[in-house]
Write a protein that binds this DNA or RNA. Sequence first.
DNA 1: ACCATACTAGGGTCTGAAAC
DNA 2: GTTTCAGACCCTAGTATGGT
Length: 304
Amino acid sequence: MNQHPLGFNPAAGAALTNDDRDARLGARRGGGREGSEVATAPVQAAQAGESGGGGGAAAPRLEKRTYSNARYRITLRNYGKNMAEIGWSFVGEVPANKAARGESSERSKNEDRAVRRAKSRLRHLILSANANHLLTLTYRENVTDFKRAADDLNRFVRKVKVSLPDWIYIAVAEQQARGAWHWHLAVRGRQDVDLLRAHWREVVGDGNIDVSAPKGSRKDQRLFLVRYLGKYLVKAFATGQRSLNAHRFRASRSIPVCAESVSIVPQPGMNLEDISLDQLREAAGSVGFVWKNDSLCGWACSWK
DNA sequence: ACCATACTAGGGTCTGAAAC
DNA sequence: GTTTCAGACCCTAGTATGGT
């Protein structure tokens, strides 16, 4: 992730109010990266004191955060071909005393959050990798031991990597009704089905593979994989078989996730949402879906 | 094929503010 | 007090790689 101290993209300024434009003084364009992440500096106490009442809904929160040394961050991920997403929020303080792993009274909430984060990471990987084909690895026998299924996937990946060093994958497990595990992998481009089947059978003996390219444009294919694997990421361990700390999905390490950082100095009246959406429009050409829980925390993407 | 090791990155946890 | 989210920190599962 590339971070730009005290900068912002001035090209998106045309749609901003004067206050917004002022907030972006001193901005400079971040280099030629595909995406941008905006990490803002703490508001100076003097600035916060001047902001009272002016500048819309964001201003009051801006002041309160000032006294806790909070920072603001906007993260833009531009996947190219008119697809991008953006999120904006505060950055909180460092936590003091943590509960032991798995023993928090907020265990359920934390797990829900971990699932959401895993789904976000899955989306970042699939879109960044331009994964547009779905590879399914199945067993003929009823393999209900997840550890064995995970080991088999590892062995399969190692064999494929020997044959195809640049091959990448994002894998999610699914358990069939009979209890057997199998793997769904998002992969990039057309696949050598015979090679993959041969490697999978070297590992598991009697098994099969299936490769499919979802219908629709390339952009739609990527989103199909995001939704499809995301669904199984949540579903796979819903029966409670998942152990503490176990990963919900597997992926190649060599997938670079596009994200870039630009910093801005918060100003009274600055509207973080407007700034973020301008950035998204500039990166992807449109704003499709917007989520927000208040004026200074939200997420948006170019698709619907 | 197996093992050991270094390193990466996902998971668990807590925090912040505003609205209710 | 509860609810909502993402970020930061730390721990550890998992990946990649080299040696046998």
